[in-house]
Design a protein around this nucleic acid. Structure first.
Lengths: 344, 344
DNA sequence: TTGTACGCGTTATCAT
DNA sequence: ATGATAACGCGTACAA
C-alpha cells in the first residue's frame, strides 16, 4: 500500500478484517451483505480515503464508466447544448463524457465507430442528428452490446433508445402564426435533403399552407444546408422573386440569421418588409436585431434525458427514472414577425 | 480466445510462435527487435485483426489514452472551437477526448479536479481560460504527475505548458485603427475583473489611448462580464453619456453584439453613429448586420497545438513537433467601423 | 534479441 | 453471508 500511496481494495480488506470480495460487494452495493460488515467496511473506506481504481474495474467488468457522444453536426451551439445537458446528468456520478465527432460521408464511418466502441468499451453512447438517423449505426451498437440513445426530430426507435422532438407539429404552429397575421406569400428555406429534421420541418410547412388552402409555388422553396452561407444564397433567391414573399420560415436559426442579413443588405426592414421565423432558439436568435422569432428546441433537456436513459439500469430501481422520450418544441415570439405591409 | 471472440495478446503470441512480451514489444515499437520477428508478429496481428485492450493497458501502464479538457467557460463557441482543434490533433490516433467542465467559484474545485485526475489517470489535460490562469491547478497537475497545457491570453507558464495569444498587442492595433479614423471619444466595455484576458485587453486599450495622447475619462469604461446581457447593460451606460462615444471596443464578440443591439434599439446606425470592434471572431461577428470588425483569435489552431504539445513525448522524436507557444491574433476588418460623423 | 514469472486492482466462480 | 482463487489482458523485471 505504501508503494504508490494509494490504498487498494486489499488494504481495505486487510484492515477491515474481511476478504477482497466483501469489499467489492460493498462498493457494488450488493444486497446480500450483513449490515454490520457493510458499516465496518465503509468506515475503513472512509478512513483510508479509498477510491476504487476505474482502470481495474474497466478491465474486470469489460466496460468503462464513460459515456460517448457521437455526432456529425454542423451546428456548434447545438452540440454545446447537448453536452451541457449530458454533463448536468452525470455531474456527481463517476461517469465522464467522451466526445467523438465522425464523418458522416466517409465510407469507413461505420467501421470507425465500431472500432471506437470496441476499443473504448463505453458504458453507452448518445448519437446526435443527423447521423442518429442512420439505422446501421444503431445496428452496430446492438451488435456490440453497447447501450445507445438516439436524438432526433421525430421518433426513429424504441422509447428506451430515443429522445425526440416534434418538429413538424411546431412548424405548423409557426406557419399558422404567419398566416393568421395575414401572410400568404410565405417562403421556405429548407434544410439539406439527407436530414430527417429537414424533411419534418418542410412537412410541417407544407401542411400548414395546405390546411389554410394556400397554394405553394415551387419557387417559394429554396434549398439550404443549415449553414449561414447557404442561407444567404437561399434568401437572395427568395428575395429576388417578384412579387417577393412577405415572410420566410428558415429551417434553422443560422439560415434565419442569414435571411435577416440578406434582407438588410438590400435595405429592407425587418419585420416591416419581411417577417422571419427560425428554428433552434440558439443564442444568435435573441442576440441579433431585431430579436428573432424562432422555435425553441429543448436540446439541453433532451441531452440530460438521453444521458439519464443511458444510465437507467446503472441507477437501477433507486431512481426509476422514467425519462420522457418526447420533448415538444415551442414557438418563441420575438420581434422579427409582423403583419405584411398593406397592399403587399 | 474463442470465448469472447476477440483475440488477445496471447493468441497472437501463440500463433506467431513467440512470447507475449515480444508481441508487446511490437505494439510498443520497441527498437530492439529482430526485423523478421517483427514482421511475422505484425502479419499475425493483421490476420487476426488483433487490437490491444486499452483497459488492460491502462491498468498496467497506470495511465489511460485519454486527453482531458478542463474548462469553466462562458463562451460556448470558444469551447467548441478548442474542441475542434484538439479533435483534429488526435484524429487517427488512439487518443480520445474527455470533456470536464468545472465550477471556478466552487470551494471544492481543486479537490474535484484532483479527484478527477486521480481517478481517470489521463494522459494529459488541457486547461482553458479563465480557469487556466489559476496556478494552483497547475500545481495539482504537477503534484499528480499529469501532463498539462494551459491556454491563455498571455504567457503564464513555461512554453511546454502554455499556448498563448497576444491580446494586449492586438487591442492596441484595434484602437489605433479607430484613432486613425478620427475617433477620440472611444468607450471600453471591459471583461470581468478576475480574467487575465480582460486585464490584457484593457491594458492594450489604455496603452493605445495613452500613446495617442488621448485622455480617458473613467466614465468611458464600463464593466461587463463577457455575457450578452452584461454587454447590453454596459453599452446602455456608455450610450447614455453626453457627449456619446463615437466608437466602442468591447472585450468580446458577445458584448460587441450586445452593443450593436443596444445601439439599434435606440435607433442609432452602425457604423454611421457608432463604430464597434469586438474580440474573438466567433460566428456571430460575421453573421450579424453589419458584419462586425473584430479580433480573430486563432483558437482552433491553439487547441490543436496544445493537444500536440501534450502528445509530444508520446510521438517521441518521430515527429519532433516543436509546436509554437505564441499565436498572434489579428484584426479582421469588416463593416462596423467608420470615421465619426463630422462634428460629433 | 527473446522468454518466464509476476504485478496492476478489480470482479466472478464456486465453494462453505 | 463470506472467502479462496482464478480470471481480465497487458507491461516489466530479470533471467537466458
Amino acid at each position: 500500500m505504501e508503494k504508490t500511496g494509494k490504498p487498494t481494495i486489499n488494504d481495505v480488506a486487510r484492515i477491515a478484517g474481511v476478504s477482497k470480495k466483501t469489499v467489492s460487494r460493498v462498493i457494488n452495493r450488493s444486497p446480500l451483505l450483513n449490515q454490520d460488515t457493510r458499516a465496518r467496511v465503509e468506515a475503513v473506506i472512509a478512513e483510508l480515503g479509498y477510491v476504487p481504481n476505474v482502470q481495474a474495474r474497466a478491465l474486470a467488468l469489460r466496460h468503462n464508466f464513460l459515456l460517448g457522444l457521437i455526432h456529425d453536426n454542423p451546428n456548434a451551439q447545438m452540440v454545446m447544448n447537448v453536452q451541457a445537458g449530458i454533463l448536468e446528468a452525470i455531474r456527481d456520478t463517476e461517469f465522464e463524457l467522451i466526445v467523438r465527432p465522425i464523418d458522416r460521408g466517409s465510407s469507413t464511418m461505420l467501421a470507425d465507430v465500431r472500432a471506437f466502441l470496441e476499443r473504448q468499451r463505453l458504458y453507452g453512447v448518445l448519437i446526435l442528428p443527423p447521423v442518429s438517423e442512420n439505422d446501421m449505426l444503431a445496428d452496430v451498437c446492438n451488435d456490440l452490446g453497447t447501450r445507445y440513445v438516439r436524438m432526433g426530430s421525430t421518433a426513429l426507435d424504441a422509447p428506451e433508445h430515443m429522445v425526440a422532438s416534434n418538429d413538424s407539429d411546431v412548424v405548423v404552429e409557426a406557419v399558422n402564426h404567419l398566416i393568421s397575421l395575414g401572410h400568404s406569400r410565405i417562403g421556405l428555406i429548407a434544410g439539406p435533403h439527407g436530414f430527417r429534421s429537414a424533411r419534418e420541418r418542410r412537412k410541417g410547412f407544407e401542411q400548414a399552407l395546405s390546411e389554410a388552402g394556400i397554394k405553394l409555388p415551387r419557387s417559394l422553396i429554396a434549398d439550404g444546408n443549415y449553414t449561414f452561407e447557404s442561407g444567404l444564397a437561399a434568401a437572395d433567391r427568395l428575395l429576388d422573386l417578384s412579387p417577393r414573399p412577405t415572410a420566410i420560415f428558415a429551417s434553422n436559426d443560422e439560415m434565419a440569421a442569414a435571411t435577416l442579413h440578406a434582407a438588410r443588405r438590400r435595405g429592407m426592414s425587418v419585420p416591416e418588409d419581411l417577417s422571419i421565423i427560425g428554428f433552434d432558439d440558439t443564442a444568435i436568435a435573441s442576440h441579433i436585431w431585431p430579436p428573432m422569432t424562432t422555435v425553441h428546441w429543448p436540446i439541453i433537456s433532451m441531452g440530460r434525458s438521453a444521458a439519464l436513459k443511458l444510465l437507467a439500469d446503472f441507477f437501477g430501481d433507486d431512481q426509476a427514472v422514467e425519462e420522457p422520450s418526447l420533448f415538444p418544441s415551442t414557438l418563441i415570439h420575438r420581434a422579427s414577425v409582423a403583419p405584411p405591409r398593406a397592399g403587399s
